[in-house]
Design a binder for these strands. Sequence first.
DNA 1: GGTAGACCTGGACGC
DNA 2: GCGTCCAGGTCTACC
Length: 321
Amino acid sequence: MGTRLKIAVPTDYVLTRDGCSYGYFLLAPNLWEPRTRTFTRVLDLAGGAATVRIVQDGDAKARRGAPLTAVADRALARPERTEAKRQIARMLSLDEDAATIAAFHRADPRFRRSGRGRVMRSPTLFEDVIKTVTSCNVTWPSTVNMNRRLCEVAGRASASGLHAFPSARRLARMRPAALRARCSVGYRDQRIVDLARLFVSGEVDPAWLEDPATPDDAVHDAMLELPGIGPYAAANIMQLLGRYSRLPLDTESLRHARTLLGYAGPDRAVMKKLHAHYEPFGAHKFRSYWFELWAFYEGKRGPAWTWERETMAKTFTASQF
DNA sequence: GGTAGACCTGGACGC
DNA sequence: GCGTCCAGGTCTACC
């Protein structure tokens, strides 16, 4: 008999909206099932991997703010329950309370009506860093493949036969050539192993990076020191840390700028205009940028919570719309 | 400080 | 089925 957890959420929380708010919800080991509005995910816990199925209580009209129920495929010891709740809270941004989201809406009222404000992420910073590396310099289908293979090859299996995201300890022990051959990560092989070793050795300290008292600039500088992390990846990891004052601009941003915002000119000039466009949103600028982009995707493909992982694995970037 | 080229994979396309 | 081209961010060497 698996353990059942009841998880309180902020008063304005809606799983379909706040859980399906960033591309990582479509990457292994995450699985969102639109028909049942269930978020399935394998967590790596002290006693082994455990698959949890998460739903929000209440009917369609009464889900807002209703607690989550997470059911594991095995019995969890008390410390594992605490850890599972902590990981789920990070992944679903449950630490962002209604007042925090309201502050974003004061800065950018365009999203007050939809209530958008929370960005989904991973249960651990390590997974967010590796997922970011697997999203650099590739098209979306390759990112999907890399994450699926990483889980299958190096992630611990749960009783359900699903695999967790590999731990830093596990990836730190892998040979780069094996990672390349079995997970299709290409030239990222050495960088992924090096990153894992930095987490294992403690040279990368998630507690310090996640501490609100640590200045943004210090976190950003530390990210840029990491192998495989350049300006885009550093800014992206910043937002995954809940630090929204930087913009991870890439070719997708340029497309957005030209097609939706109507900007013209060479890349450098368009990038400059993009920075100026989001500057008024200050500490919230990433969310203004992201939900603008996300609204475009949803306009083309319907609400994100209706997206099927396998379909979106082949068509996700705007270039393919 | 700016820039060119290499790094890999997988999809699209032409033959 | 094969070969070629292209997209994508980071890193290094060079000016």
